[in-house]
Simulated scan of single mutants.
Amino acid sequence: MRPPVMRLFPLAVFFTLDGTIFATWAVRIPAVKQQLGLTTTALGVALLCLSLGTLLSMIASGNLVVRFGTRVVLLTACALVSAALVLPALAGSVVWLAAVLALFGLFYGALNISLNSAAVEIEAALGRPVMSMLHGLWSVGCLAGSLLGGLLAGRLGTVAHFGLVAGTSLVLTAVCAPAMLRAPEQLPTVPLAEGIAGQAAEPRYGGRRLGLPVVIFGVVALCVAYGEGAVADWSGLHLREGLGAEASLAAYAFAAYNFAIAGGRLIGGWLIGRLGVTGVLAGGGVLAAAGILLTAWTGQISLAFAGLVAVGLGLANIFPVAIARAGALGGPNGVSLAAGIGHTGMLAGPPLIGFLADHAGLPTALSTIAMVSLAVAALAVLGRARTAPVSALRAH
Score class of each variant (00 low, 15 high):
318 I>E: 12
364 T>S: 12
339 A>D: 13
332 P>C: 11
340 G>C: 11
335 V>D: 04
347 L>Q: 03
338 A>P: 01
379 L>C: 08
345 G>M: 07
361 G>R: 08
325 R>N: 12
343 H>M: 13
326 A>H: 09
374 L>G: 05
360 A>N: 08
351 P>Y: 11
356 L>Y: 02
325 R>S: 14
338 A>W: 00
319 F>Q: 09
352 L>A: 14
331 G>K: 02
325 R>F: 10
329 L>I: 06
362 L>V: 01
317 N>F: 10
364 T>P: 00
382 L>H: 04
345 G>R: 00
343 H>Y: 15
357 A>M: 09
320 P>Y: 10
349 G>D: 13
373 S>F: 06
313 L>F: 15
374 L>V: 13
352 L>Y: 09
364 T>K: 06
381 V>S: 06
312 G>Y: 08
340 G>H: 08
369 I>W: 01
374 L>R: 07
354 G>N: 03
350 P>D: 04
368 T>Y: 09
365 A>H: 01
369 I>G: 00
366 L>I: 12
322 A>F: 10
338 A>C: 07
316 A>D: 10
330 G>F: 07
328 A>Y: 09
322 A>R: 02
313 L>M: 13
337 L>G: 02
327 G>E: 00
325 R>A: 15
337 L>I: 13
322 A>H: 08
345 G>Q: 02
325 R>E: 14
375 A>S: 10
377 A>E: 02
372 V>L: 15
372 V>N: 02
348 A>R: 05
353 I>P: 00
353 I>E: 02
348 A>I: 15
356 L>T: 04
353 I>N: 03
357 A>H: 02
381 V>L: 15
365 A>F: 00
323 I>G: 01
339 A>N: 14
350 P>M: 05
327 G>W: 01
320 P>N: 12
328 A>E: 05
369 I>K: 02
318 I>N: 09
324 A>S: 15
332 P>M: 12
368 T>S: 14
350 P>R: 02
325 R>P: 00
344 T>G: 10
